[in-house]
């Protein structure tokens, strides 16, 4: 029986289409964030940074990602509340809280890293590049998935796009699509 790494390699090889790979990476990031596809890409970036630096502190993450303190505190609380990270008081200074990814988040991130040559830096570049695509300052994983699907499908109907999108109420998907059209990221024909 092939070893785990062998299976992963086969899995990756079967997904050689660049767009398909990006879709899969987004799927794994959503899984790492508790299947919450409305998570901002910035949250995924914070999680990847913590995974890359086990036992890191909030201040260190803020410095590396240039994120303001209020946003950072909110996102760390979310990650902790959803079981994505554990927090431990420092042994030398109890005021310092150290964070490490855990459980399903760590496992799902490892799958995402398979597509990034096992490099957190590459995965961060991917997320950062995605963020810069949007005019919206807080793009979500749902936004990104819809863009990837639209790029892959070419001309597609609303139904075809939503079939590829993350599960959500129809109104949510419509609002997401309309937002992308407003930003000029997805073009549409006039309805006739």
């Amino acid at each position: 029986m092939p070893q785990k790494s062998g299976l992963k390699s086969l899995h990756n090889a079967a997904s050689s289409n660049p767009i398909q790979r990006m879709g899969l990476v987004l799927d794994h990031l959503v899984a790492a964030l508790g299947e919450d596809s409305s998570s901002p890409l910035r949250r995924a970036q914070i999680l990847v940074d913590i995974d890359a630096h086990p036992n890191t502190t909030q201040t260190e993450v803020m410095d590396r990602l240039k994120i303001n303190k209020s946003t950072m505190s909110r996102e760390i609380d979310w990650l902790y509340d959803h079981g994505c990270v554990i927090r431990q008081a420092g042994q030398q200074d109890g005021r310092l809280i150290h964070m490490t990814t855990c459980g399903y988040s760590k496992k799902s991130l490892s799958f995402a890293l398979d597509y990034a040559d096992h490099s957190h830096k590459n995965l961060q570049k991917f997320i950062e590049s995605l963020i810069t695509v949007f005019a919206n300052p807080k793009p979500t994983l749902r936004d990104a998935k819809l863009l990837v699907s639209a790029t892959e499908l070419g001309d597609a109907s609303r139904q075809e796009l939503f079939a590829r999108a993350y599960k959500a109420p129809l109104t949510t998907n419509i609002r997401t699509l309309e937002g992308l059209v407003e930003q000029g990221l997805i073009e549409t024909d006039s309805e006739s």
Partner: peptide, 24 residues
Amino acid sequence: MVQKFRAAQTTIDGLETAFLGLTG
């Protein structure tokens, strides 16, 4: 006639850059 949607060229360019980042 069904309304069709497609990615804008800026989107395609941006995703290409993102993919290159992913591969290093």
